[in-house]
C-alpha cells in the first residue's frame, strides 16, 4: 500500500505539473501538444547536469541546479513552439508534433554523445543514462517521498493564485477566450501568449525531470517519457482547465499509472495480467473519461486559432 502511495504521488505530481503547464498555454490560446517533447528536453538536460555536477556538490545544490536546468531547458524549448505558433501563425498541432519528434531525437543524440565521451570515444551507442537519485528522495514515516512533491504543491498554489487573483491571470485568460476583445482594451495578445507558452515550458521541463528521477536510477531515452505528456493533456481536459480539479484528476490517473509499477507485489498478481495491460490502463481510462466529459467541455474558446492583428 505504501508503494502504491509512493508511486501515485510521484506520477500524480508529474501529471499535475505538466497539465498545469498545458493549462496555462491553453488559457492563453495556444494548444500545446508539445508537452511530451518539453518533458523529454527538461528531463534530459536536468539529468545531464545532475550527472555532470562535480562530486563534492551538496545535495541541496544538486537538486536546485538540476531542477532549474530542467525548467530553463523547457522554457527555451517551448519558445520554439511560441515562435512558430504565435509569430509565424503556424498550425499549433503540427508545430507541437514536430517538437515532440525533435525532442526524442535530440535527447538520444545528446545521451549517446555523452555516453560515448564518458567511455573515451569508443563509439558506445547506449541510449541509457544512469544517475543517482538519492538526493531527491527522503522518508516521512513509512512513505518515501521526493522533493518534487513539495515543489509541485507549491507551484499548484502559485498557479491558482496567479490565474484567479492577479491581473496577469485575468489578461491571460482573456487572450485565450477572446483575443480581439483583449486587443481592443490594449492587451498585447502576442506577449500574453508568449508568457502562457513559456510557463508551460517551465512546468513541463520540471515535470520531465520529476517523472524520470524519483522512480528509477537509469533511464532509456529511446522511449522519451512514454506518453506522460499526452496523458497530462487528457488530465487537463478532465480537470476542465482549472488547477484545483487538475490536481484531483492527476492523482486519479496516477493510481492507474502506479499500478503498472507495483501490481506484481500486491494481490493484483492473482488477476494474472501482464505489465502491458497495466500500462494500457491510464490511456483507456482517459479515453473513457473523455468520452463522458466531452459534451460539457469548457475549453478556452479561441485556443488553436492563431491571432492575426489584421483580421477582425
Amino acid at each position: 500500500m505504501t508503494l502504491l502511495i509512493k508511486y501515485t504521488l510521484i506520477y500524480g505530481i508529474v501529471l499535475m505539473l505538466v497539465a498545469l503547464g498545458a493549462c496555462f498555454s491553453e488559457h492563453s490560446g495556444i494548444i500545446n501538444i508539445a508537452m511530451e517533447g518539453i518533458m523529454v528536453i527538461g528531463g534530459v538536460f536536468g539529468l545531464l547536469v545532475l550527472v555532470m555536477l562535480p562530486a563534492g556538490t551538496s545535495s541541496f545544490m544538486k537538486v536546485l541546479i538540476s531542477i532549474c536546468t530542467a525548467a530553463a531547458a523547457g522554457v527555451v524549448y517551448s519558445a520554439l513552439l511560441a515562435f512558430a505558433s504565435i509569430n509565424l501563425k503556424a498550425d499549433q498541432t503540427i508545430g507541437g508534433t514536430a517538437l515532440n519528434l525533435l525532442a526524442t531525437a535530440l535527447a538520444l543524440v545528446l545521451v549517446k554523445r555523452y555516453n560515448n565521451t564518458m567511455s573515451g570515444g569508443t563509439g558506445t551507442q547506449s541510449p541509457k543514462l544512469s544517475f543517482v537519485n538519492s538526493d531527491f528522495i527522503f522518508n516521512i514515516g513509512p512513505i518515501t517521498v521526493n522533493v518534487f512533491l513539495f515543489v509541485g504543491l507549491a507551484l499548484l498554489v502559485i498557479a491558482i493564485v496567479v490565474l484567479y487573483r492577479t491581473r496577469f491571470g485575468m489578461r491571460l485568460m482573456a487572450c485565450g477566450e477572446h483575443p480581439q476583445a483583449a486587443d481592443s482594451v490594449g492587451i498585447n495578445v502576442y506577449r500574453m501568449r508568449w508568457c502562457g507558452v513559456l510557463i508551460s515550458g517551465f512546468l513541463g521541463g520540471i515535470g520531465g525531470l520529476a517523472y524520470i528521477v524519483p522512480a528509477v536510477q537509469v533511464w532509456n531515452f529511446e522511449s522519451g517519457v512514454t506518453g506522460m505528456g499526452f496523458l497530462a493533456i487528457a488530465v487537463m481536459i478532465f480537470g476542465q482547465w482549472k488547477p484545483g480539479r487538475i490536481f484531483l484528476a492527476a492523482m486519479f490517473f496516477a493510481v492507474f499509472k502506479a499500478l503498472a509499477n507495483i501490481y506484481d507485489s500486491t494481490f493484483l498478481t492473482a488477476l494474472n495480467l501482464t505489465k502491458e495491460v497495466y500500462n494500457m490502463m491510464p490511456f483507456i481510462a482517459s479515453m473513457i473519461i473523455l468520452a463522458f466529459t466531452s459534451k460539457n467541455s469548457r475549453a478556452p474558446k479561441a485556443e488553436g486559432v492563431p491571432y492575426d492583428k489584421g483580421q477582425r
Binding site: L80, A84, L88, K89, A90, D91, I94, G95, T97, A98, L99, L101, L102, A103, T104, A105, L106, L108, V109, K112, R113, N116, Q125
Partner: peptide, 19 residues
C-alpha cells in the same frame, strides 16, 4: 555521431513545414 541526427533533421523539417 549517433544516427538519430537524421531524425533531428527530419524533426526540423516538419517544424519548418508547419509554417
Amino acid at each position: 555521431f549517433p544516427g538519430e541526427i537524421a531524425d533531428v533533421v527530419s524533426g526540423i523539417i516538419i517544424y519548418l513545414c508547419a509554417f
